[in-house]
């Protein structure tokens, strides 16, 4: 450029820092949605059309509810950020294969409208929306939610479809012959909710998130580790057969919960120590439920209970402030 410059060139003024990591809420959420694809594929392989139907219904209901509520609250439309899609998918993953599609939709509406938006929307909700939605349908339609039919690929000859049990249910009833092999549990060829059976597929998605730094290893590790340890150490309740720690890890909703729901950013602690405490709490509650509770599962309850403790955990697990000896408890004397 020759000569002197016009002094009035237009410059954009914005506050520091002027560099950003490029990580945005939509990017985070859509990546989580993408990481759910292996589990989605597994659900279609094992449960076929029934799974597709539930996922479509839940996602559509979640997105529409989100849009309607954004409109009513006169807020910018947030469906583009992908969080409603994630909630819808996760909710569908937590349903047994034979519930009607309207039930999936009802759960999704509740998850978005009540559990998420009534608390103020993304970032302000206390409880995991998908789990809240699941709890709602489980209480409203209990028998539908506890009826499991076998996966398409299972050898069901001679079994009454309606009494097919999940691995955890079978262990609870001491139906040893109904407990599938460890390999089948790992790949997901067992009865259960559509998206939870395949530990393999869930772990694949989890690896992606972990390698991109979108989730921390702390919650899944503390969660899975404490369940494995406690189910190994503690005796089982009366009338049940013991499952090995590995069988526990690969059965029921544990893997899905530990990798995708206990790692939900909004409803879990912010500090590393807090995350460990959260995972430990979830693991302990899950193990106790599984071994002694009235219901052989326990993952959803444990995560929801720990969600409620998150603010407290946050308060007591603040990092040590640089240049101070003690970790800063809050509120601390200034």
């Amino acid at each position: 450029m020759k000569g002197s410059l016009p002094t009035k060139k237009k410059f954009t003024v914005s506050p520091a820092p002027h560099f950003f990591s490029g990580r945005t809420i939509p990017k985070v959420m859509w990546t989580v949605a993408a990481a759910l694809l292996p589990a989605l594929a597994a659900s279609v392989i094992f449960f076929g059309w029934r799974a597709v139907r539930l996922q479509a219904a839940a996602v559509a209901a979640a997105v529409v509810t989100e849009a309607v509520i954004s409109r009513l609250r006169r807020r910018p439309l947030t469906i583009g950020d992908g969080s409603a899609v994630v909630t819808g998918l996760l909710l569908a993953f937590n349903l047994p294969p034979d519930v009607p599609a309207w039930l999936a939709a009802a759960g999704a509406v509740f998850a978005i409208a009540v559990v998420k938006q009534a608390f103020g929307g993304l970032g302000f909700n206390i409880f995991n929306p998908a789990l809240g939605g699941r709890l709602f349908v489980a209480h409203s339609w209990l028998s539908r939610m506890t009826t499991f039919t076998p996966p398409l690929t299972a050898e069901t000859a001679g079994l009454d479809a309606m009494t097919y049990a999940t691995p955890l249910g079978a262990a609870r009833e001491a139906l040893v012959e109904r407990i599938p092999s460890l390999w089948n549990m790992f790949i997901g060829n067992t009865g259960g909710c559509i998206g939870e059976t395949s530990a393999l597929a869930i772990l694949l998605g989890g690896m992606v998130l972990l390698s991109m730094g979108y989730i921390s290893w702390r919650i899944p590790a503390a969660y899975l580790g404490s369940v494995a340890l406690l189910t190994w150490l503690l005796p089982v309740g009366e009338g049940a057969v013991a499952l090995s720690p590995l069988e526990h890890l690969f059965s029921g909703g544990l893997m899905l919960g530990a990798v995708f729901m206990a790692t939900d950013m909004v409803t879990t602690p912010v500090s590393g120590k807090g995350m460990l405490a959260f995972g430990l709490g979830c693991g302990t509650i899950t193990a106790v439920f599984r071994l002694y509770g009235g219901n052989p599962e326990g993952v959803s309850y444990s995560i929801l209970i720990m969600n409620a403790f998150t603010p407290l955990i946050d308060r007591f697990t603040r990092p040590r402030v640089f240049g101070t000896l003690k970790k800063g408890l809050w509120p601390r004397k200034a």
Binding site: V28, G120, G121, G123, F124, M265, F322, G323
Partner: peptide, 16 residues
């Protein structure tokens, strides 16, 4: 946008 409570800011804060 509303804080997601993702905790990333804690991880990088050099002052703890």
């Amino acid at each position: 946008l509303p804080c997601l409570r993702c905790g990333k800011c804690l991880t990088v804060c050099p002052m703890g």
